[in-house]
Each structure stands twice: as C-alpha cells, then as structure tokens.
Computed example of a mutant assay.
Amino acid sequence: MESVGKWISTIHRYAHIFFNQEADELGIGGGQFSFLFLLYRQDGVSQDHLAKKLYIDKATTARAIQKLEECGFVRREKSEIDRRQNLVYLTDKAHGVKEQVMETLANWTNILTKDFSEEEYEIVLRLLKKMAGNATEHISKGEGCKREG
C-alpha cells in the first residue's frame, strides 16, 4: 500500500516554503499565518486556546505569539478573570494586513485544489478531517509507536 504520510509530508513541506515566502515581506515566519487567521476569527483569546485550536504545543505557541508581538501584530494582556492567562489581541497593524493574510491562505487552498471539482473538494476535505481526527485520537490516548518484543 502506498504511503499517505509521504504525500501529506510533501504538501506540508511545500506549504512551509510557500508561507515563509509570503510572510517574509511582513517580517514574520510562515507559521504565524495560522495564528493571525484564528485571531481574525476570534480576537482576545488565550494562548492556551490558540494552542489547542492549532494542535500546537504551548511553548511553540508562546514563541509564535512573542514574535508577532515583537513585530507589532499582537499585544498580550493579562486576563481579568484569570490573571494566570495572557489574552492575545490583534493590533491596528495586524488589521491592516488582514486582506493580505486571508488572500495568502485562500491562494494556497486554490493551489492545492486546482482543477478539483466541487465533489472532489468536498471528498478530500472530509477525508483529511477524518485523518486529522484519527491522528488526534491516537496521540491523545498516549499511543506513540508500539514496539514489538
């Protein structure tokens, strides 16, 4: 059976290249696009919320938010409800590049789904979501590599 992971890995590597090229002119890394995208949808959320939504560990999330803060795209404020939490808010600078960020994300989707019919698009989206769910379930159960012997 041909490896599904090989193709997912290939897409991931090319996505990394694409987003890094696009983000370069903003002075951020390609990985920060997903954080901006989530914040455009829901501003003023905790770093923990962002980490969970993106399935990224807390340390990586903290570094990404720190980079965005240093570049002037977000600000962090202590939550008034839970002083242990930092809430992340978009700045005017981030709102100024929203269209560019959203267009970049849409362009990548269009590149990946070029010449797909509507039906093919829906099928691949459903299957990818199912695969992501399978991976999440497996890892959340603490099932790493099972060794024989």
Rank of each mutant, 00 (worst) to 15 (best):
M1V: 14
S3P: 07
G5N: 14
I11F: 05
H12P: 02
H12I: 07
H12L: 08
R13D: 10
Y14R: 09
F18A: 02
N20D: 15
Q21W: 05
E25S: 10
I28G: 09
G31M: 03
Q32R: 11
S34K: 02
L36Y: 07
F37Y: 15
R41F: 10
R41D: 05
D43I: 10
G44Y: 09
V45C: 03
D48G: 04
D48Q: 08
A51R: 02
K52G: 00
K52W: 02
K53D: 01
A59Q: 12
T60K: 06
T61H: 09
R63P: 05
A64L: 03
A64H: 13
A64P: 03
I65S: 00
Q66D: 15
C71S: 12
R76I: 11
K78L: 13
S79C: 15
E80A: 15
E80R: 14
I81V: 15
D82R: 14
N86R: 12
V88T: 13
T91F: 02
D92M: 07
D92Q: 15
G96C: 10
G96I: 06
G96S: 11
K98C: 00
V101A: 00
T104R: 04
T104D: 00
L112R: 15
K114F: 14
D115S: 07
F116D: 01
E118D: 10
E120M: 11
V124E: 02
V124A: 11
R126F: 09
M131K: 11
M131C: 01
A132R: 12
A135I: 07
T136P: 00
E137L: 15
E137K: 14
H138L: 09
H138A: 10
I139N: 01
E143C: 01
E143I: 12
